[in-house]
Design a protein around this nucleic acid. Structure first.
Lengths: 228, 228
DNA sequence: AATGATCTTGACCGTTTGGTCAAGTGTTCA
DNA sequence: TGAACACTTGACCAAACGGTCAAGATCATT
């Protein structure tokens, strides 16, 4: 009786993990209403009734998936605080968020779906954790502005821009792939995109020098000689 | 017999308009699977059977809604070509896309939902119209780079950044509102956000001066003083 | 070996959904 | 006036869905 309450049996832990993994994929592809418990069970390789043994309702399962995603988001958020230097902090944050979009696109999609539909399940997170985090980082950005380290811009608009752009590579990856000839971005292409995003944001707020085309140097591999 | 084929009866035109308007709102709020024809009919103020008289299937109705949205998107896309000057062209384009997000958030949400779920209905648009438009504008951007008018950046990444950021104000408006104390952005707040987005993008690609807090003047080229 | 707890599963059920249908009501025009 | 046509609508149906259940299989503990 002691072990069971503290440590869910290994079978249970393993099955919950498999189900949650399958659920994330199915919810990402079809949304909450579009996903069926049958689809999730099939993807997890178990009968539907077994899924309902571990997760009584579809909503409980969905909530667990969203909570997991929110934790990943929070994890990335910490990289904002790695340094008090705007260039270092924003580079680390954008870089981490881009990595998550690449490695965890399904989680991002579930989150996007939830917000799109007015956050019926996770509104409380938005009003507590997310609101606090955002307000605190906005004030960091305002301090940078006051110190003259970056140009005066709307801090929230900057944060939204970073969120929107980085998450776009997960949420809209189907569109990006289609525009890339139907193939996913290669590692090099993704690295180039990440570099561009960081460069535009940093230069955009006056936190890094803008290198115009003419002066050579530049380690840039993408040589811009183009049309002749 | 002549008039009927060329001009749908006024009744039909008016009813289709009302249904499409209701459908856009319901699809935006609930997604394709989440929306029911019953909800749409109720919102349009007609019995469900009447809705099916005008639109035989839910999918046909959905497709009409998405087509309408795509046309709005294309309309905005034209503002990219208003000028060959990077500053003017991008300012017009971003401005127009922000306005659409403000005035047409539901359309944007339907589009986002469709891409999120791998574009089951409008994949053909992505592969034709959207692909052509994007390739052509990417080459305009590449020319600007070759002419040294903007910094060398990945053109697609720039376009994605603009799409992501501007559409974020529609697709994620619930999150933005929540972080704004539960209230929608005022006109002034939205104008400020728009200004910030334009400023960051233009400065980010070296197409506009970065004005640091202290020195007011100068579009100075060599302004790489940064941290002190 | 026995006992209780955990886990598995096919069959089942009430509800919701997209869509149909037939019986109507208006409307147009010869 | 009347007949062809467009529109309206309550009632209905088969399929799909989330969830239940009871009977069995497996496992841990003594």
């Amino acid at each position: 009786m002691s072990q069971k309450t503290t440590q869910k049996s290994a079978v249970r832990a393993e099955n919950e993990r498999m189900i949650l993994k399958a659920a994330e994929a199915v919810f990402a592809d079809h949304g909450f209403r579009g996903a069926t418990t049958g689809m999730i069970a099939e993807r997890a390789g178990i009968p539907k009734a077994n899924l309902h043994y571990y997760f009584p309702t579809k909503e409980a399962l969905y909530r667990r998936v969203v909570e997991h995603i929110f934790n990943i988001w929070l994890d990335a958020a910490n990289s904002f605080d790695e340094s008090d230097d705007p260039v270092e902090a924003l580079t680390a944050y954008i870089s981490k968020k881009m990595d998550i979009s690449r490695e965890h696109p399904m989680g991002s999609k579930v989150w996007a779906n939830e917000i799109l539909h007015r956050a019926p399940v996770i509104q409380d997170y938005l009003e507590t954790t997310l609101r606090d985090w955002t307000a605190s980082r906005a004030s960091v950005i305002e301090r940078w502005i006051a110190q003259g380290r970056i140009a005066p811009i709307d801090p929230n608009a900057l944060l939204y821009m970073i969120w929107a752009t980085t998450q776009h590579y997960a949420d809209f990856n189907h569109q990006i792939d289609t525009l890339n000839g139907g193939r996913p971005l290669t590692g090099e292409q993704f690295a180039e995109a990440k570099k561009t995003v960081i460069q535009i944001v940093l230069a955009g707020i006056g936190a890094a020098p803008v290198s115009l085309a003419r002066d050579a140097s530049a380690r840039a591999s993408g040589d811009t000689e183009a049309a002749e």
